[in-house]
Design a protein around this nucleic acid. Structure first.
Length: 139
DNA sequence: GCCAACGTTGGC
DNA sequence: GCCAACGTTGGC
């Protein structure tokens, strides 16, 4: 299973909103970036990803999982854009801030650090394990 | 709220 | 196919 990271502004759609959606999850629509779309196309059912609060918060707050494969984005007629559905799995006991991530040399190559503008990004197995440890949450 | 960094668009 | 102009994102 591959690992990912989903970014969202908590003022628009935060972790609590995803939790409120329950098992059905939420269509991760509105992505209008090819790299992010390609990442979603590559996702498998059951793949897990961190849920990160951008703009305000700036921390990983929980783990989500892919519950629907890439399909046309219902918010547009433009057939270029696709998205997956994700649902909340469990929160981080201890949220991990961007500051903490940046200060750890083992995480220096994370896309989050290198390309802060990509909203859906891959996470390596090593990064996944380190961050789950920091979050005091099982992978 | 500002602005740097990045991605996209469109004229040439 | 280059690149200037523009729009958006997200850290600060």
């Amino acid at each position: 299973m591959a690992h990912w990271l989903f970014k969202s502004e908590p003022d628009v759609f935060g972790w609590d909103d995803l939790v409120a959606k329950g098992k059905a999850g939420e269509e991760w629509d509105g992505v209008r970036n090819y790299q992010a779309r390609n990442n979603m196309r590559a996702m498998a059912l059951g793949d897990t990803g961190f849920f990160y609060h951008s703009r305000s918060g700036l921390e990983i707050v929980g783990i989500a999982e892919v519950c629907a494969l890439a399909h046309p984005d219902s918010t547009t007629d433009d057939e270029r854009w696709e998205c997956v559905d994700i649902r909340a799995v469990r929160p981080f006991v201890q949220p991990v801030s961007l500051e903490t991530i940046k200060s750890d040399p083992r995480l220096a190559d994370m896309v989050l650090v290198k390309n802060s503008r990509l909203s859906v990004q891959p996470v390596t197995d090593a990064e996944w394990d380190i961050l789950c440890g920091m979050g005091k949450t099982k992978p």
